[in-house]
Design a protein around this nucleic acid. Structure first.
Lengths: 235, 235
DNA sequence: ACCTCTATTATGTATAGACATATTATGCAT
DNA sequence: ATGCATAATATGTCTATACATAATAGAGGT
C-alpha cells in the first residue's frame, strides 16, 4: 500500500469516527506532512481524493474543513443495453421497430431547432422477453451517416456510442405509467409502472441525439455502490 | 486558465474530434510534455482527470489509449429531502407517521442479523402535497441514541446523515406500482407508478440503516449532467 | 517453434523547492 | 468603532529529479 493510500485511509477513519467531526478544521498540509513523515505533495494527493468525494472542503488561507454531509453522491453507470443484458447472464435480442425521417414526437422542447431528424424505435430483449423500448431522435445535421446506416442489426444505442463524439450528456430518470405504445411493445398492462431513462446528448452547442429508454418496472433497477473506506486487506 | 486545464481541454478536443480515435495510443508523457512545453507532472495531472472520467486507459509499459466508450457514467447526487424541496422553491413540510421498536417489514433479506431495530415511517411534503414517503429501519446496536431521539420534528434522514458515520452506501433505484400504504400516504391511486430509492448504509461490516423512499412518479425525476469539454469562456 | 530470462520502457509514486493567489487577519488612519 | 490598505498564510500550481514497478519486447538457449 502506497503512502498516499495509507494517509487517505487514516484520514477517512478520522472523519468517519469523528476524530475530525463535520465542520472542524484539519491541521494544515505541512503539519500533516510532518505528522505522517511524508512530503507535502503526498498529503495533498490524499486530500484531493477526499475533496473529490465531497468529504473535505478547502479554501485558500482558511484551511481545510470536514464537509457537512447533506447529500449522498455516487457514480451512476449505465452500460450499453446489450452488455447490461449479457452481463446478467441472459441472452440478448434486438429488433428494429421503425426508422423514418422527419418524425419529432419526442422533440417536445424544440431542442433540435428545426434540424433534419431521424426517428428510430427499437426493442431490446433479454432471454426473449422485452427488456427496453428505445425511442430515439438523431440529428442528421450532426450525424449525416445515420441516414444511410442500417439499424436492423446494430442498435442505434451502440452505433452512436462508438461512432459519434459528444461533449455533454444530460440524463433523467423517472417512473411512468405505461402508455399504449410502451405497453404494446413491452408486453405489459397499460398504466403499469415503467422505468424511463431519458438522455440528451450534445456536441458543443448542437443536439446529437435524444433518447427515451423504457423498461418494465418489474425486475428492473439501477444499483450504485460507494465505499469510502478502502477494503481492509487481511494483513 | 492553468496549464493543466488547457492541456486537459486540448486532449478532450482531440478525443472528441477523433484526432485520437477510440482505441488509439497516445504519445507518451514525455513527448506530450515537450509538445505542450510543460513538465511531465503537469501532463500527468491532466491525464489523471481524463482517466477518472473513463476517457483514457493507461497501463505501465503499454502506454495510454483512448477508452472505448461502452457506458455512460455520471455522478448521481441525492440531497437531503428537505433541501431537495426547498431548492425547488417549494415549502417543506414533515410529519412523523410511526416509530416503534422491533419492526422488520423492510428487512426482507435479513441484513441486520437479529440486531434490535427501530422502524420509522414518515412523510415529506412539498408545498403541502406528499413528496416522499420514508420507510426506515435503524440498527439500534450501532445507533443506540436513535431510541431516545424524538423524530417528530427532525426527520431520521437528516438526523442520521449528520450524526452517524458510515463507510459504505448501496443505492437502488426502481419504479413500482403503489401498494396500499404508498397510495394512502402519497395520496395517489393504487397501482399508479411510484419512484423508489432504496438505500442501505453500512459502517464497516454492520448495517446502520435501510431506507425506502417512495415518490409519486408524476412530477418526480432525477437529473444528472456531465460535461466533458470545459465551458468555453468568452476570450 | 517454444520457453525462459533479461533488458527496456511507460507509467506510478515520492520528494523538495519555488512561486502564485485567494482570503483572512492585522494595524493604521479616520 | 469603522473602514481601508497591507501583511501573513494556507492552499494551488508547476518544475525537476529520482526511483519503483508492471508489462512488454527481445535475446538466447533448448
Amino acid at each position: 500500500m502506497h503512502a498516499y493510500e495509507k494517509i487517505r485511509t487514516e484520514m477517512l477513519q478520522r472523519i468517519s469516527q469523528q476524530v475530525w467531526p463535520a465542520g472542524s478544521s484539519l491541521p494544515h498540509e505541512e503539519q500533516l506532512a510532518e505528522e505522517f513523515g511524508v512530503a507535502r505533495g503526498t498529503v495533498r494527493r490524499a486530500m484531493e481524493q477526499l475533496v473529490d468525494q465531497g468529504l473535505l472542503e478547502r479554501k485558500r488561507k482558511a484551511g481545510t474543513k470536514v464537509a457537512a454531509r447533506n447529500a449522498h453522491s455516487s457514480t451512476l453507470t449505465i452500460p450499453v443495453v446489450r452488455r447490461e443484458v449479457t452481463d446478467s447472464g441472459a441472452e440478448y435480442g434486438y429488433s428494429l421497430l421503425s426508422a423514418r425521417k422527419g418524425g419529432r414526437p419526442l422533440d417536445r422542447s424544440g431542442y433540435f431547432a428545426g434540424a433534419p431528424l431521424l426517428h428510430i424505435c427499437c426493442l431490446h430483449l433479454s432471454d426473449g422477453r422485452p427488456y427496453q423500448l428505445e425511442d430515439r431522435l438523431i440529428n442528421l445535421a450532426v450525424v449525416p451517416e445515420a441516414e444511410v446506416q442500417d439499424f436492423s442489426e446494430i442498435s442505434p444505442n451502440e452505433w452512436l456510442l462508438q461512432k459519434v463524439p459528444y461533449s455533454s450528456v444530460c440524463t433523467t430518470l423517472k417512473a411512468e405509467a405505461a402508455d399504449a405504445k410502451q405497453s404494446r411493445h413491452l408486453q405489459i398492462a397499460q398504466h403499469s409502472p415503467v422505468f424511463v431513462i431519458e438522455r440528451q446528448t450534445r456536441l458543443d452547442k448542437q443536439q446529437v441525439t435524444l433518447v427515451r429508454m423504457s423498461h418494465p418496472a418489474a425486475g428492473f433497477s439501477i444499483i450504485t455502490q460507494t465505499n469510502w473506506i478502502d477494503i481492509p486487506d487481511p494483513e
